[in-house]
Amino acid sequence: MTIRPDRRTEPTQLRPFSSSQNLLNRCDGSAQFQFDKTAVLVSITGPTEVKFRDEKLDRASLEVIVRPLTGLSSTKERVLENVMRSTFANVILTGLHPRTSIQIVAQVMKDDGCVSVGSAAINATTMALLDAGIPMNALVGSVTCMVGKEDGEILMDPTMEELSRARSIHTFAFDSASRTSVMMDENGGKGTSGGVVLYSESTGDFTEDEWWLYKA
């Protein structure tokens, strides 16, 4: 039995996560998702009036804004915006609300420096979309994992301390509808039972076999 820095006992164990919905009064849907010391609050407005420039005749346009914990948003946030938009573009049934805009604003509330902010933001967005009643064809669940430098052990949802000895870091998002091959372990609570990868980003030094393994 391994003991991880934050007293988790299993490599596949996630940090305690929680989510609460309908926190904000003035938007159409909101949710906060938290992995221990990483938390993201997401608000949804829409379907609402669209700027003429972004108007699409056959579907709603998605507008994603990510605000960092402190300071101005940088390249990192822009990348997360891009990831979130492309992840949810095909999950939200945008065709049902043509010529409108759905705005997703994610505010990082707590960030302990680990890479799971992206995962938390994706999970929070799913919960907020549910709260807003935006039609979707599936739920999206996301998780981050890493592989150790020395032992090659896969750790789910690594902490900052564990990340310092990571050889590669991986973030995945799965949708709940396509129950095909892989099963995710922990996400039962959110109703995700794995399936096709919607978004995947892996960095570091790793082999193909390892990559398939993380997905399992």
Partner: peptide, 28 residues
């Protein structure tokens, strides 16, 4: 046939109607 919203599934036997009773803020 899949659901696209979170809510309570309702069914009327007679006319075989199915719908999801859900709640939201934005009016469609």
């Amino acid at each position: 046939i899949t659901s696209m919203k979170a809510g309570v599934l309702n069914h009327l036997e007679g006319s075989n109607r199915w719908w999801v009773e859900s709640n939201q803020q934005r009016y469609i």
